[in-house]
Design a binder for these strands. Structure first.
Lengths: 256, 256
DNA sequence: CGTAACTTTGAGACGTATCAATTCTTGTGG
DNA sequence: CCACAAGAATTGATACGTCTCAAAGTTACG
């Protein structure tokens, strides 16, 4: 079985064969399939299981009192959907799919065991949580101090990096089922304005985007336009140029 | 010794006398004093110690390439400044003081021990981390889907709640050394505009703000203006109306 | 008691929202 | 395999929130 969760964590640390087996076992025990636009876990819900996204694309979001939706993060295979549920009484936001997806379910008790061991696995779980914090902080910077163009550029570039890291692509093209309305809800923009900015990107030869495929035609210029620096992703082994890992995303995150 | 860290975590769980003693010991072993406008830990730095803010006021921030500053969070006594440092190679942002402050230093090895125990302390540490994630997500909602007025109202109200929870005040007045420039850097606004919005708040009788003291004159209206809901703070014991704890902040966070 | 930091005020410019209408895609059932 | 429906992308004209930049007040503090 492909194990994107282990693959993701291996950005941070190397696992022994035993540890990989352990992670494979944990993921295999119980899985769940979702259609597009379905909640993996609803706002305010509780569950005894954490979900790891195995395939598909999901997002964290919240519906505000006035009906508007704010997307706080996109989730790609290997991401933990609701790590907090093992410790908190209920979710303070929802996680929903954008496309048909599958998840692996991990029981809270199993999760607590993994976290309490003095092992690379528990360290990798902490790393994942700390990285999530970094990603959220970067999004705050996006929305506080970058204009619409920079925000969108940053989001597109980050998605490419994360797809590369997760092994979902080896080129500069990614499957991109995210609609312009989704992008608007994630960046705090209007769908119309998202559209106009994307068109400018196309005119300027930065990207191609059609039929659910996004191609970053000029990664270097998009990166500098976005003021992108990969530090907040804490891809330690990639930065250290671990051969197996660096090959996947090194060209995108190199420090200028 | 006053232990705001333990006080904060007791929002989530009750500690035995032994556990309180343990936390007191951890905090007492090594402390550090800072002046106003000084970095507790710099962007890109590494340290073998985590810092817990004991007194004063600090913020997480990042300086962008163009020199602008984005404040991502304010830290009050009891908050962990740099939990990530025990696992990550370096900080992806800085933590600096706004006023003269003191911190307690916790060695990485001690931190790892606390986290690995099957104890209320390790659960409370996870709770703190998960709550930080929630606060950051709320800030993303602020900046993505709320206008300047709502953003500022939300920030002021949240500060009042956090001061109450930490035991720093029992009224609707708090010490508020945060300048309008700081508020601008935190909310993604211009200092001029912060000023104009604050004046409106004063005219409308929502707040009083002078000589470093903020008084929320009309908490109920400010709360509804901000669309504030305390769910993201996960104050479990407060919601459960634990008498000792609920008394401190219950009136501010009650569900409408 | 002077000076630096902070707050306040003003007028004009600009980015982005609004809202409505149109065109293009995509998936689906006949 | 085509036609249609539903969703998604595109376009346009106007309105509004917030920024910009500059200058004048005010406050705090050594």
């Amino acid at each position: 079985m492909r194990n994107p969760w282990a693959t993701k964590m291996e950005q941070f640390t190397a696992f022994t064969a035993d540890e990989r087996t352990r992670l494979d076992t944990v993921l295999a025990s119980r899985q769940q399939a979702f259609q597009a636009q379905e909640d993996i876990i609803a706002d305010g819900a509780h569950s005894d299981y954490c979900h790891v996204l195995l395939t598909g694309l999901a997002c964290r979001y919240k519906i505000l009192p006035d009906g508007e939706r704010q997307i706080m993060a996109f989730l790609v295979p290997g991401d933990l959907c609701d790590a907090e549920i093992f410790i908190l009484k209920k979710m303070d936001h929802a996680v929903g799919t954008l496309t048909a997806s599958t998840t692996a379910m991990i029981h809270s008790s199993e999760m607590k065991m993994l976290l309490r061991e003095a092992s690379p696995i528990s360290e990798a779980l902490w790393w994942g949580t700390m990285t999530d914090l970094g990603v959220l902080r970067e999004r705050i910077i996006d929305q506080g101090r970058r204009d619409a163009t920079e925000r969108l550029a940053h989001l597109l570039y980050e998605m490419l990096v994360r797809y590369r890291v997760s092994g979902a692509t080896e080129t500069n093209a990614i499957d991109f089922p995210i609609t312009q309305t989704d992008l608007a809800d994630a960046t705090g923009m209007t769908p119309s304005h998202v559209n106009r900015v994307l068109q400018r990107f196309r005119e300027d030869g930065l990207i191609e985007l059609r039929s659910r495929t996004l191609t970053i035609a000029n990664p270097a210029r998009l990166k500098s336009l976005a003021q992108f620096s990969a530090a907040y992703l804490h891809l330690d082994r990639t930065e250290a140029k671990d051969p197996a890992v660096f090959a996947r995303a090194g060209d995108l995150i190199s420090v200028p």
